[in-house]
Design a protein around this nucleic acid. Structure first.
Length: 526
DNA sequence: ATACATACC
DNA sequence: TACTGGTATGTAT
């Protein structure tokens, strides 16, 4: 018998870290926007913001900058005023220290630190160079981006407040105001606002959360309930933008432009207020929203007045630049902990400082990263983002499972078969096929590996997927017998529709082999 | 083309 | 008692 499979079917799905209680008032940063754009025009000698001078003065204590920011409390999302971060981090570290998970995080952190260190060295060298040429290239790039600025659309990002917890609280009033979390002792998907006051967060292991908040209650996740609630919420979205783009059960982007042009008496603010009231009255759940000229900005705005609030960012360039440049680098979506640390090491802590150091970043980063940074700090949306209605098809589909670490090859193969089975079932439901199979392996020390194989034909049948996935696994077991795993996954990519287009006449063509060279690849479905 | 890393929910 | 599951994309080779 094959004894793979350990995790009791907990369907995790970490809800957005999003909201965090309280506050958020207009930051009074204000100031000299005036020379923001002017810098571009005149190739001025900015940069004197001299990144390095701030280096030494880290006030956040031992963990914040130098230590393991991966492990430390993520204080990005607002509303952490009454929180003793030092104490919380001490607890998190003392509980995690020495675990295999911790050691792996430390290893990854060290890798990233080395990369960053090279960039810091390089920055020092760049400082002594004449970057006139680069400056003008950057200027041109930014002028191109500026030409893409689109202030004509009204985009709103709606984000439900502590969604899973809110649903549970609605259905069980005894939870009201209590510190509880949805999830188990291994992993939390959502924390109630009362629990967040203790530093408890989504994506935090429950047993650590329990140290932070001994009275924490656990509620088992019930996805059907959340899906049902999400459906109700989406019915409201539908009324305002039939092409709304859901990002998860609790979050979506809407383009309100058409609605507003059909309702001249409305404003973005009144529409979103009404929409949030309808969500509340029809589902008993509160939502927060951000209204801005593009989805990137709207996303940042929706976090601003959470929970149960909304924030409107005016649709003029000056307001947008002022808003964006005051942001800490961690705020915009896409800049995570690693990139934040990278930027911090360069002395860059706000989006204004990204702008000020753009010539150095141009030299230090890849073209894609630089382009993204500039889009962020100029408040330009990313290029394809706000084309609603024609959402791109999914590019991959995968299943994975965590289990008690094992070296048992038979159990591993059984798990591959089981994952391939469920994958093929879902692929059938979705009517898709794929030509690339990837297996994912996580060793008991948490190091992750993957092996993939691109085929000349499309697969969708369980047995075919199993065959390729097993081949990949066996290759690895050859090279690395005795390897101990805690997770395996199977992914299919290179996807295409598996529905046969009846107009094309498969039978006719496939019977005459002389046409083979001309048959489009996608007709070779199996 | 493949492997690995980062990010988001 | 013990650090998820799913998808997309960027970076490196």
């Amino acid at each position: 018998m094959e004894c793979d499979d350990v995790t009791g079917g907990l369907e995790f799905d970490v809800e957005s870290d999003d909201d965090d209680a309280i506050n958020v008032q207009e930051s009074d940063v204000l100031g000299d926007i005036s020379d923001f754009w002017d810098d571009l025009a005149e190739t001025s000698d900015d940069q004197r913001a001299n990144p390095h001078t701030k280096q030494g003065s880290v006030t956040e204590g031992p963990n914040a900058e130098n230590g393991l920011s991966r492990i430390a409390l993520d204080d990005n999302k607002a509303g952490m005023d009454g929180l003793d971060k030092q104490k919380i981090n001490d607890i998190i570290f003392s509980v995690s220290k020495g675990s295999r998970f911790y050691e792996n995080e430390a290893r990854k952190d060290e890798m990233a630190r080395k990369r960053t260190e090279r960039a810091v060295q390089e920055l020092g060298r760049l400082k002594s160079l004449d970057l006139t040429t680069e400056r003008s290239i950057v200027e041109q790039l930014c002028t191109k981006l500026e030409a893409q600025r689109d202030l004509s659309k009204v985009i709103v990002h709606v984000d439900m407040d502590a969604f899973y917890c809110a649903v549970e609280e609605r259905d069980d009033p005894s939870l009201k105001g209590k510190a509880f979390a949805v999830g188990g002792t291994a992993m939390l998907t959502t924390a109630s606002y009362a629990a967040r006051a203790f530093g408890v967060r989504a994506a935090m292991p429950g047993y650590i959360a329990l140290r932070l908040c001994p009275e924490l209650k656990f509620v088992r996740p019930d996805h059907r309930k959340y899906s049902a609630a999400s459906e109700e919420v989406r019915k409201v979205f539908q009324r305002y933008d039939p092409n709304f783009r859901p990002m998860s059960l609790d979050e979506a982007y809407l383009d309100l432009t058409p609605y507003l042009s059909m309702h001249p008496e409305d404003t973005p603010i009144t529409v979103v207020s009404r929409m949030r009231e309808e969500i509340l009255s029809e589902t008993g759940l509160t939502a927060s929203a951000g209204i801005a000229a593009n989805s990137l900005l709207a996303k940042v705005c929706s976090d601003r007045n959470k929970p149960n609030g909304q924030y409107f960012l005016p649709f003029d360039r000056e307001s947008i630049l002022e808003f964006v440049q005051a942001l800490p680098v961690r705020k915009p979506p896409g800049i995570g902990k690693v990139t934040e640390q990278f930027l911090h090491a360069l002395g860059i802590r706000t989006c204004k400082e990204i702008w000020d150091n753009r010539v150095y970043l141009y030299k230090l980063c890849s073209a894609a990263s630089f382009d993204y940074f500039m889009r962020v700090v100029m408040g330009i949306g990313s290029s394809h983002e706000d084309r609603f209605g024609s959402g791109p098809d999914r590019k991959s589909i995968s299943h994975e499972t965590t289990f008690y670490p094992t070296s048992d090859a038979t159990a591993m193969r059984a798990t591959i078969r089981r994952l391939s089975h469920s994958l093929s079932v879902e692929m059938a439901e979705e009517k898709i096929k794929g030509n690339t199979v990837t297996i994912k392996l996580k060793r008991s020390d948490f190091r992750v590996f993957q092996k993939s194989k691109k085929l000349m034909r499309y697969l969708k049948m369980e047995d075919d997927i199993v065959a390729v996935a097993l081949e990949l696994l066996n290759d690895e077991l050859q090279v690395n017998p005795g390897i101990e795993l805690r997770l395996m996954g199977v992914r299919m990519s290179g996807l295409a529709s598996s529905e046969v287009d009846k107009n094309v006449g498969i039978a006719k063509v496939s019977e005459s082999s002389e046409y083979l060279g001309l048959i489009p690849k996608h007709l070779f479905s199996i």
